[in-house]
C-alpha cells in the first residue's frame, strides 16, 4: 500500500513540476514565436507584392483566404490568395498575388510548403519556374505541351508537379466567386487599375490615365466582358 502511494505521488509531482515549468516557458516564448511568424508572413507578402503597405483580410462567399492589398496612397493594388493543391508527393501550399483588372492576371506566385522530391519536383519553388507565371491571365496558364495557348514550361522530370500547380492556379483565377467579388469591388469604389510591374508600365500607363478620368465608362466596359463570362 505504501509503495503504491509513493508511486502515485512521485509520478504526480513529476508531472506537476514539468507542467508548471513548461507553462512558464510557454508564456515567456509565446510573444517571440508569434513575432517570428508574423515577420515571416510579412516578409513573404512584401516579396510577393512589394508595392503593398496595408493588408486587409476579407471574406468572399466561402472562398479561399483572401487579403486586399493597398499601397501608400490607399490604392487598391492587388489581391493575395492562399491556396493549395495536390502535387506528386503531397499537398503543395502556395500564395498568389493577382491584379484587380477585370480579367485578373498574376503578379507573383510563391510556394509556401511542399513535400515534392528534392532535385526534381522541389524545383517548383525556384524562381525560373515561378517567374513564368508573371502577368499571365487564366487562359494562358497551361503547360505548353497541354494546350496551344499555354505559356508555362514544365520542369523536366516533374511534369505531374508542374501540371498540378498550373491547373490549380488556373482554376483559382477563373473562379466565378473571384469575378463576382472583383465586379462588386469595382462598382462600389470605382477602383483604378494601377500598373504594377515596371517592365509593363510603358504598355499600361496611357490606358490607366484614361481609366482614372472616366471611371464609370470602364466599369461598363469591364461589365460587358464579365457578362460574357457569366453567360458562358
Amino acid at each position: 500500500m505504501r509503495e503504491d502511494l509513493k508511486m502515485i505521488l512521485v509520478l504526480f509531482f513529476v508531472c506537476i513540476i514539468s507542467a508548471i515549468s513548461l507553462s512558464f516557458l510557454y508564456t515567456y516564448t509565446k510573444p517571440k514565436i508569434e513575432k517570428n511568424l508574423f515577420a515571416k508572413e510579412l516578409k513573404l507578402k512584401s516579396e510577393i507584392i512589394p508595392q503593398a503597405e496595408e493588408f486587409k483580410k476579407i471574406n468572399v462567399e466561402n472562398f479561399y483566404d483572401i487579403e486586399e492589398c493597398y499601397d501608400k496612397e490607399k490604392n487598391f493594388v492587388g489581391i493575395l490568395i492562399k491556396s493549395s493543391c495536390k502535387g506528386y508527393a503531397g499537398e503543395i501550399e502556395y500564395i498568389v498575388a493577382i491584379t484587380t483588372e477585370s480579367v485578373p492576371r498574376i503578379i507573383n506566385l510563391k510556394i509556401i510548403s511542399h513535400k515534392e522530391t528534392p532535385g526534381l519536383g522541389a524545383n517548383v519553388q525556384k524562381e525560373n519556374f515561378l517567374s513564368k507565371f508573371k502577368l499571365k491571365s487564366a487562359n494562358e496558364i497551361f503547360l505548353k505541351k497541354d494546350n496551344i495557348n499555354g505559356k508555362i514550361d514544365a520542369i523536366s522530370g516533374a511534369t505531374i508537379t508542374s501540371r498540378a500547380i498550373t491547373n490549380s492556379v488556373r482554376e483559382l483565377l477563373s473562379k466565378d466567386e473571384l469575378y463576382r467579388y472583383l465586379k462588386n469591388k469595382r462598382e462600389e469604389s470605382y477602383i483604378s487599375v494601377v500598373p504594377l510591374i515596371k517592365t509593363q508600365q510603358s504598355v499600361l500607363k496611357p490606358k490607366t490615365k484614361i481609366i482614372e478620368k472616366q471611371n464609370i465608362t470602364i466599369s461598363t466596359q469591364t461589365l460587358t466582358s464579365e457578362e460574357q463570362k457569366e453567360e458562358r
Binding site: L11, V14, C15, S18, S21, L22, L25, T29, K32, I33
Partner: peptide, 23 residues
C-alpha cells in the same frame, strides 16, 4: 514513465526555444 515525462519536458523546452530564437 517518469523518465519519459522528464525527457518530454526538456524536448518541449528545446522546441519552444528553437521556435523563438532560430525560426
Amino acid at each position: 514513465p517518469v523518465f519519459i515525462v522528464i525527457i518530454a519536458t526538456f524536448t518541449t523546452i528545446v522546441d519552444y526555444l528553437i521556435k523563438a530564437y532560430f525560426p
